[in-house]
Design a protein around this nucleic acid. Structure first.
Lengths: 343, 343
DNA sequence: AGTCATTTTCAAAGCGCTTTGGATAAAATT
DNA sequence: AATTTTATCCAAAGCGCTTTGAAAATGACT
């Protein structure tokens, strides 16, 4: 059932039917009601491709799946971020399109999506330092938003980010206040922008306390459970092991916990742990009492906000740049305590 | 730059340019080369909506995000399944579209996607028992594939599934062989088809060993970490606690481990644990030695296979029904051991 | 009753592509 | 040299919608 057939059945022109359905005022309410009833009865669904062709808008937002080709790794925050965003898109009549691309062809993937008219806007996730994709998007003049930021890119662009630096500074400070001096940082991949900022916060807190950073206590890799376990075990075997550990994700914090358990160490007493908690739906940090002391910021909420900001950008391409910095909350759980072996 | 402009610039008709670009034989190789060069030089990207309108195919596959509205929960396997599928789609020239829908409007979501021509095929994830969505899709005559199956639906449809029953039967059998008699099942939501099948396997193994199932040892809910922890703690407090636990996911198994740790019990010695492992990229079950004894089946691989099967279905709508049952592998790790307190 | 303003409807063009059914030029056949 | 094949290329129609510019119908006002 298409517009033509529907309009013939109603004895009206396509124009009138189209207008009736799209809420234009140039059509009497009686006619509109009649048209809507007929559309519902015959299950008429306007063809979105034809509509897109005619309007020049696709009503679709594009995402590129953030899978690092190196390790075939899907970021665990992906699901929740997307769930938040997609819901906002739907509310505003937008669909969502995904493409995947290995690192070599991301540029083509973005070009593909936008230049062939498949999407009206793009979300860029997991930016690296000096993220080249940002300039690609700017050059294409596509509305986009970055989830995160990219140090080294001076151009202005819309972004939404957690204040990674301040939250890791605060967490480090918290551990220092508890008397810890040997504090390890189990961070994300070096070239990720968020990882750099978190380290900067960590270093600054150490510096303010007059502590020398120890390169042996700063690890970085993809934030898996196995990685958290491996690095922790490694550090525990050193001559001067850490008494506290900052983990860049709940997933690797779980690995940290496993390594501590295996070593017979009690978390929160022998070794303190603070994790960054994205508040994933399947991995809540406890129910009433938090399991881990954590810097918390809901990635699902970030997805919702990112979607709203992007839709605004699409509606007003020339509006001033929008940015939004979310502050993570420090929740104190049972994984932290005073440093042992104090004088 | 569109086809018309490109063809004018080349001094050729739109027909010829279109054919040259799409690999039709009615065009000389010299012309084709010239056209391709010009297209590349001017960054010509055929508009996919126009193409779709003309061909009647959208070259897009639709997914509906499996978020149970009840708990705003995103299934953790979502990311990996999708990553596997999307890659296969790309290889075959398909894009991927997502919609979200709360439980009340799923039918509309599917209708919307297909009937307005937005997608050529649909993937249905996380089917429940008597899944009504399947009949909706059949009635719409849309090519689709189900990841999982649905007990109670007699109609024939394409599906790919893990042999949940046999793998849980085997895991239970394994625990029985180790001398366990009080075996708990921490399962997914009751109404999920996979949960039913897993329980059926569990019950059958108990039955074959002449063991009475204990309702107090069978739990089911959404498979979060907190849930695994909560149920385990609850069961440990009973008069006759289990000596072994089967967990329906790695995530809840992590909660199980946490509860055991808190109770001062040693996993694999005091209490044995077997988990179902979807082989998620960020949550590998150890590297060399598995952490948990587990029934393992890669959900990413399932995504790839589902994509292939769906693309076949789209290509040949009248081909016989395809189904595929994957056998999970039982990997023995360090979370299982002989039952304690034997006579 | 006649005029003007307003409401309601419509025909047709256009969005950017594919594809059908020729037409033309070059090569092969008689 | 005339005819048939074959290789190239093209004009135009069509996919299903929106939207412009105009026409018809209605109502309001002298």
């Amino acid at each position: 059932m298409n517009l033509k057939q529907l309009s013939e059945r109603l004895g009206l022109s396509q124009t009138t039917v189209s207008r009736a359905l799209n809420g234009y005022p140039e059509v009497s309410e009686r006619t509109r009601a009649r048209v809507q009833a007929a559309a519902a009865r015959h299950g008429y669904h306007p063809n979105s491709r034809a509509k897109g062709l005619a309007t020049g808008r696709s009503m679709v937002i594009g995402h590129v799946i953030p899978s690092s080709s190196r390790h075939e790794m899907v970021n665990p925050i992906f699901g929740d971020f997307v769930a938040g965003a997609v819901r906002k898109y739907s509310e505003n009549g937008y669909d969502t399109m995904f493409t995947s691309a290995d690192d070599t062809s991301v540029e083509d993937a973005y070009r593909g999506l936008f230049q062939r008219g498949a999407v009206d806007g793009i979300v860029l996730q997991s930016p690296k330092v000096n993220e080249p994709r940002i300039e690609v998007l700017i050059r294409m003049a596509v509305p986009f938003i970055v989830h995160g930021r990219s140090t080294g890119i001076n151009a202005a662009y819309d972004w939404i980010d957690v204040n990674n630096k301040s939250s890791f500074m605060r967490a480090t400070q918290f551990l220092i206040d508890l008397g810890h001096r040997r504090i390890a940082l189990i961070n994300g991949l070096e070239d990720m922008d968020f990882a750099q900022r978190r380290r900067a916060g960590y270093l600054q807190a150490l510096d303010q306390a007059g502590l020398q950073p120890d390169p042996g206590l700063m690890r970085s890799a993809e934030m898996t459970e196995v990685y958290g376990h491996h690095e922790t075990r490694d550090m525990l075997q050193s001559d001067d092991p850490p008494t506290a550990i900052l983990a860049s994700s709940m997933i690797s914090a779980i690995g940290v916990r496993r390594a501590l358990d295996e070593a017979g160490l009690h978390i929160g007493r022998d070794v303190s742990v603070i994790a960054h908690d994205d508040d994933l739906s399947y991995l809540k940090n406890g129910q009433d009492v938090p399991i881990f002391t954590a810097t918390r910021s809901s990635v699902r909420r970030a997805g919702e906000l990112a979607a709203e900001m992007l839709i605004n950008r699409i509606k007003s391409p020339d509006a001033p740049i929008q940015t939004r910095l979310l502050e993570a909350e420090l929740v104190v759980g049972r994984s932290t305590g005073p440093a042992p072996n104090r004088f």
